[in-house]
Computed example of a mutant assay.
Amino acid sequence: MKKTHKDLHRATVLTHGGRPEGARVTVNPVVARTSTVVFDSMATLREALAGRARHERGLLYGRKGSSTGDALEDVITALEAGERTRLFSSGLAAMTCAILSVVRTGDHMLVIDSCYEPVRKFCSQYLAGMGVTHEFFKPDLSDLAEKLTPQTRLVWAECPGTALFEMCDLPALVEMARRHGNVTVAVDNTWASGLMYRPLEHGADMSVIAGTKYLVGHSDVMLGAVTTSAAAWPRLEEVADLMGHSVSPDDAYLALRGARTMAVRMERQQESALRLARWLQQHPLIRRVFCPSLPDDPGYAIWSRDFDGGNGLLSIEFIARVDGPMVDRFVESLQLFSIGHSWGGYESLALPMHLPSTRHLQGLDIGGNIVRLHVGLEDPQDLMLDIEAALSSLSALV
């Protein structure tokens, strides 16, 4: 008897999910490039339209999906343990559509204060004009219960958070939200990318990822995805169709190719990142290292309870005497860490983080400048030597 995806480890799902079936097929799905789908009769066309009205999958028009995209959606749905998945042209497109599928004029939304900065801007610059109010809550949930109101329709979480990787106790969050009735819980799951963490299994209604990161893995495709529960799916699909969201089959194919190796890439990158994190903790110019897989990290207990592993991200806080120009010099001195946004690809990256623009609530114990590092697939010993050389250039200035 053939095993279902629920019976398999997720590394196996990544290898076998979405592959063609039959006696003589290619190991990879074809890239189905088309805008037009033709039908052999009006009855067949009406059947396809009726199926879409019932939220069933089926070829109808290029903007509404392709067989290549369907294969990728199947892999992500199996990873996230959800009902269905919708692809988007970027992670932010996925996030904003997920939000708009829930909130309406007069609604109230709660957003974790450690969220991705463009989500913060979307709430203040777009949702406010729609008449949707929003507030931020602390990642430790200490103020969440008091901010939930009868008008709250959506709680937006991110676990771990951006920049400092604060952990969020999602089961506790879901329990608080459910006490207030019709409240949807959505989670930005990009950090774990569905492989290391599955929010839907902890009670969330939607899990959103920027597939641009670890899923694609090669820094060559922009992609987003939303995986939902059965109850949340119809409205998400409706809003995505109304807004014209679509993904090219070429991008879907490249993402599917990246997904095949995501498990081995993330395993290597988390091992290298943890090695660098432990080493950086001992350096005199570093005040603190932010990485939830470190045993002394404040979020380690939640991470070890709910996650299956980590990734290649960590942030370092310099001691107070290392000022902004010195941080710039450090970043520019690195030879193997490129300067750039994003992460999750095969390459190592470094980027200074400006927390005052990405946090609304007070209470952060930050006394120095922050640099986020993404550890790629390079040999960790080479990366350590590169960082050591860049830190040495600062020692004489401090």
Rank of each mutant, 00 (worst) to 15 (best):
A172C: 09
A172K: 14
V174K: 00
E175R: 13
M176Y: 10
M176Q: 15
M176T: 15
M176W: 10
A177P: 13
A177F: 12
R178W: 12
R178D: 12
H180A: 13
G181H: 01
N182S: 14
N182I: 08
N182D: 15
V183G: 04
T184M: 07
V185G: 07
V185S: 07
A186G: 09
A186I: 03
D188E: 14
D188L: 15
D188C: 13
D188M: 12
N189K: 11
N189S: 14
T190K: 08
A192W: 01
S193N: 12
G194F: 07
G194I: 04
G194S: 05
G194N: 04
L195K: 09
L195M: 12
M196L: 09
M196T: 10
M196N: 13
Y197S: 05
R198M: 08
R198S: 12
P199A: 03
P199E: 02
E201D: 10
E201K: 07
H202Y: 12
H202W: 08
G203W: 07
G203D: 05
A204H: 03
A204K: 01
A204Y: 02
D205C: 02
D205L: 03
M206Q: 08
M206W: 02
S207F: 03
S207M: 06
S207Q: 04
I209M: 10
A210N: 13
A210D: 15
A210I: 09
A210S: 15
G211W: 06
T212F: 01
T212N: 01
T212E: 03
T212A: 03
Y214H: 07
Y214I: 00
L215C: 06
V216T: 05
G217T: 00
S219K: 02
S219Y: 04
D220M: 00
D220K: 02
D220L: 00
V221C: 05
V221S: 04
V221H: 03
V221T: 08
V221D: 03
V221E: 02
M222V: 00
L223F: 12
G224P: 11
V226I: 10
V226K: 03
T227K: 06
T227V: 07
S229W: 07
A230P: 13
A230Y: 15
A230R: 15
A231W: 13
A231G: 14
A232C: 10
W233Q: 11
L236Y: 00
E237C: 10
